[in-house]
Design a binder for these strands. Structure first.
Lengths: 119, 119
DNA sequence: TGAATACATGAATAGATGTTCATATGTACA
DNA sequence: TGTACATATGAACATCTATTCATGTATTCA
């Protein structure tokens, strides 16, 4: 790297060419924000366990609560978040509401994550 | 489903067979916890932007701060979290510390996430 | 050696988030 | 119609988290 690129860090930048090039290719702010929001949904062990359970079988709220040994209210709140993120869908049968995964990507994202965790 | 499986939700469960079968196949608590912790790292737009920037080019702390228009301290704190999650690595050259992605999975997890977000 | 610079880090604070508690909604069934 | 039950939801609270501010560490160079 040439010395004339060096500037004081706090005021400007060191490698102006690199920064400019990367900046040009950055996706729109909104895309990365949405991506972070999606991963935020995956970033809670209760929701992860719900998603994993649903990848094994469709289940009603009550069963999920029993499976995870948590209150029905807590599960219902989390299902709402998963629903808003379009990660789960539901069908009603009388009083009972059955939830299931709403997206093929869920399993793939899971798999990729597990690859990293394993080691 | 047969009626003798029906129980009161708050006390027990509705579909005991399903719950038991899913419970048997649940991964160890720790695995799902670690998975959630990993996604939690992805679940912040500052870190997402850092990771995206590093997927384009290795960069020093100062340049990342300039690129994202944030303080050096804020970036350094986030890099620490990314380092602990083994998502980035670094090399020192004199005073300057260059960060880069430490895992091929990062790009793949990114890609899967973007697939879901796009629509 | 001393000044300048790039980065790291601890403490503090404001804001976000998950669970609980109480209660509302909607469906089935006697 | 009234009771029981499965689920949803709003408010409150405790905990977690991202950034700022001040300062420490390490390296270069005059």
């Amino acid at each position: 790297m040439s010395n004339n690129e060096i500037k004081k860090c706090d005021s400007t930048i060191i490698h102006e060419d690199v920064v400019n090039k990367v900046k040009e290719n950055m996706p729109p702010e909104e895309s990365l924000y949405n991506l972070a929001e999606l991963f935020k949904v995956f970033g809670d062990s209760t929701r992860i366990r719900i998603l994993y359970a649903l990848s094994a079988s469709d289940m009603c709220v009550c069963d999920i609560a029993a499976l995870l040994d948590m209150s029905q209210s807590a599960i219902s709140h989390q299902l709402r978040i998963l629903k808003q993120a379009r990660l789960v869908k539901y069908r009603k049968e009388g009083k009972v509401v059955y939830y299931s995964l709403d997206d093929d990507h869920v399993n793939q994202i899971f798999a990729q994550g597990l690859e990293h965790v394993k080691e």
